[in-house]
Amino acid sequence: MSWQDWASGVLLLLGCGFYLAGTLGMLRFPDALSRLHALTKTDNLGLMLVCAALAVRAESLRIATLLGVVWLLGITASTVSAHLIARYARRSKEAEP
C-alpha cells in the first residue's frame, strides 16, 4: 500500500465518523436548532474529509480540484439552508411559544 492509500483511508474513516456523529445528533437532539448544530458542523467536516480522501487518490489535479468545488458547493448550500431553517424555527417558536 502506498502512502496515498493510507492517507485516504484515514481521512475516509474520520469523515465517516463525522457523518455518524452528525446523523446521531440529528436523530437524538431534542429541537431544531441543536439538530442543525449537529448536522451542519459535522456534515461540512465530514464532506470535507471524504472529498479530501478522494482527492488524495485522484488520478489528476483536475479531478482533485473538482472535488474541492463539490465541497464548496455543498458547504454553501448547507449554510444557507441551515440559516433559513433556523430562522423559520425561531419565528414559529416566537409565534406560538
Binding site: T76, A77, T79, V80, H83, L84, R87, Y88
Partner: peptide
C-alpha cells in the same frame, strides 16, 4: 423572507 444570504446564494 428577505435575507442577504439567499441573495448571495
Amino acid at each position: 423572507l428577505p435575507t442577504y444570504l439567499t441573495d448571495a446564494l
